[in-house]
């Protein structure tokens, strides 16, 4: 792993099935909207020895017509929405501050859990984030400090604390302590 500037990380990792699934999805998603990956996949991306069934993604709020173009292209490329049978249902879920899940036809694991931003921290994650460049593509992920704060001080399950610990050790020479402290206060309010 190598930092190229402040906001870009080069990661020379081997591609997993999970990465392959995610990259297929992101290649379509990024044509339609801004996005940011949050939560468990980030600790896995940087080496955590665990799997996951879903990957959390925040996308910019958009109108139904724009979402429809994304929805159609996902369908054309073999994805389906687990939780809604139609574009209208899926968009309705999103606007009700709920997430929608997309998987490849014939499966439901792994899946993408996609939502519109729900709070100022989600909006910030869309605005201030990191780019990770890998041999098989690039991804936009939320700031490491935000993930650590959210997992250690908001979610606090055993798995989340372990994820936070992992990220703290991996990024110990790069973590901005003031930023982490700001995020810690923000997730507690």
């Amino acid at each position: 792993m190598q930092f190229i500037g402040k906001d870009t990380i080069k990661l020379d990792k081997v591609r997993t099935e999970l990465d392959r699934f995610l990259m297929d999805f992101i290649r379509i998603l990024e044509k339609h909207t801004k996005y940011v990956i949050i939560s468990g996949y980030i600790s896995i991306l940087f080496g955590r020895a665990r799997g996951t069934e879903d990957i959390d993604v925040i996308i910019e709020r958009m109108d139904k017509e724009k979402f429809g173009r994304l929805y159609d292209e996902l369908k054309k490329n073999g994805f389906y929405c687990l939780i809604a049978d139609s574009l209208g249902d899926a968009y309705g879920q999103l606007t009700e501050k709920l997430a929608v899940r997309f998987a490849k036809k014939g499966s439901f694991i792994p899946n993408i859990e996609m939502k519109f931003p729900k709070n100022p921290l989600d909006i910030r994650a869309l605005e201030e984030n990191l780019t990770v460049i890998m041999p098989f593509g690039r991804l936009i992920i939320s700031e490491i400090e935000q993930q650590i704060a959210f997992k250690r001080y908001a979610l606090k399950s055993e798995k989340d604390i372990e994820d936070a610990e992992h990220l703290e050790m991996i990024f110990k020479d790069h973590i901005d302590k003031e930023k982490l402290s700001r995020y810690r206060k923000a997730v507690r309010t």
């Binding site: 081997v14 997993t16 999970l18 080496g47 799997g51 610990e165």
Partner: peptide, 25 residues
């Protein structure tokens, strides 16, 4: 978790990710 994080930190991306790939796949 700490032991593995230290391994990831001190070994090449290719090394740790090859091992992680077996688990995830």
């Amino acid at each position: 978790v700490r032991l593995w994080a230290e391994y990831v930190r001190t070994h090449s991306d290719k090394d740790w990710s090859s091992q992680q790939k077996v688990l995830i796949d």
